[in-house]
Every structure is written in C-alpha cells, then in structure tokens.
Amino acid sequence: MEQLIIPETEISRYAEIARQVRINTIKMVYAASSGHPGGSLSAADILTVLYFREMNINPVEPDDPDRDRFILSKGHASPGMYSVLSLRGFFPLELLKDFRRLNSKLEGHVHKGVPGIESSTGSLGQGLGVGVGMALAAKLDKKDYHVFVMIGDGELEEGNIWESMMAGYKFKLNNLIVVLDRNGVQLDGKTQDVMPLHDIPGMVKSFGWNVIEIDGHDIRQIIIALERAKSSKDLPTFIVAHTVKGKGVSYMEGNYKYHGSPPASEKEYHQALKELGGE
C-alpha cells in the first residue's frame, strides 16, 4: 500500500466535505431540538471517505445489484449519515432541515426509506449481523461487492456483535469490512467507565479477523486502511479508528453530554458553527 499516492488536493477536498457534514449535523440537531451530534462529528471523516472515494455507489442508481453496501450500525449518527448522502447526491440538501419532523423521510434514527440507506438501524449491535448476511449473499451470487459496517465502541458491549464476529470468521467473509468509531464516549460517560474493554484489537484478533488501527480523523490513514481491507484474501477486516467524540466543536469534544443532545443554547449553536467555519 505504500505506493498509494493520494494528492494533497484530494485530501483537502475530503476534509472540506467532512467539514460540511459537521456543519449540517449541528444545523440539523439544533433545528430538531434533539438528535446525536457527538457520534456524527466523530464519524464524519470516515463517512466522507467511504461515500466520496472508497465505495462503488451511484446516487442515480441506488439499487444497482453490484453496488457496495454500507450499514451504519450506530444508527443514532443519522445527522452525519444523512448529510453525507445528500452531499453525495442521493437526495436534495433542503430535506435535511426537516430531520426528525413528522412527515419527513428523515427519521430520528437511520431509516431504509431514505435513498441510499440499506437497512434501518438504531438499536445497537444489529448492523454487523445484517452485514454478515449481505456478505454471504455476495458470495452466493458470486458478486465482488464489499459490505462496510460502521459500529460504535459502546456498541461493542452488545453480545450480538461478537456472535456476528464469529460468523464473519467462520464464513471467511473477506468482503466484509468493519470500521469501529472508537471515540471512547457513550451515553452515560466514558466507555472505560461504563464498561471497560481491556484490549479491543486483541479481542478482535482472537476472533480471527484482520485488525488495522488508525487515526480516524487522518484522511490519508482512512483511505490506506480501507484499501488494505478491500484486498484481504480470506479474512474479514476490522478497522479500529481512533476518533474524538464531538470532533470539531470544542465544548462537545470528549463530552458525553453531547452524545444525544443538541447545542443547549443559541450561544452554543453559534459557537459550534463558528468553530466549524460555518458562519
């Protein structure tokens, strides 16, 4: 992978899109007076690289049978997800302002009725299993698409994840790629306080998966990790992406209170936008 040359202009293009994703996220949760900014801000760079570079998808043909699949298992990061999809052209940006409103397609948690969404999620721990099923289907149909699943680190506390990890190994799903948004914070506090996991890469390795550790805000590292994962011969790959919860908004960074709450005041709202260069 060392020979992979990624021009600086391309990197800054993705960084700019990720910045727009973060600005949209803040606007959406503030307008809705609810929603989950923290995990959207931590995932923004990864989501951007997936949808603007790594995945074979076409917003004009969202049902193309040969497309790559993406499941956002941490379905509460819906503002980030919807922002990326609309910026990528799956639906008009205007729709974002109605996020979480009655009669809007943009449900509070990621919903299959939205163009580009493969499966409804929101209850943690289930998306990886759904990804296993899709990867099995690709093998049966002799198709070479990849299935990407993003999970949160609090989500690793769900038993379903580890059941599905076993299946990924058993069926040699080298077409299955998990990206862990390792932001270290869940609803009630730091993951290390709520339910500490001693050694995530070690746990994943012992389940027989490839493990790659990266800085989840370093676009170059994200690209290289995903390219390496795609070339896996017979094992599924698990990318541990170290991120910062609430990345880009100083008072949200590492603060569990912004896992599931919007800016608390107009002052906070404007500060967030200002820090993101959004006003």
Partner: peptide, 26 residues
C-alpha cells in the same frame, strides 16, 4: 450445503444475518 448456514448457538447472529440475506434478495 452452499445455501445452508449453521450460525452456531447464536440466535441474534442468525436473525440479523437472515435480515442481511433478505435485503440482498434471498
């Protein structure tokens, strides 16, 4: 044998994989 998946004693894995297979047209 190619279309039969024994998921082990992992019902949650079985049900979610079933969903993924159905989402892929099975």
């Amino acid at each position: 044998p190619d279309r039969f998946f024994n998921m082990g004693i992992s019902e949650q894995s079985m049900v979610t994989a079933a969903a993924g297979l159905a989402l892929s047209g099975k």
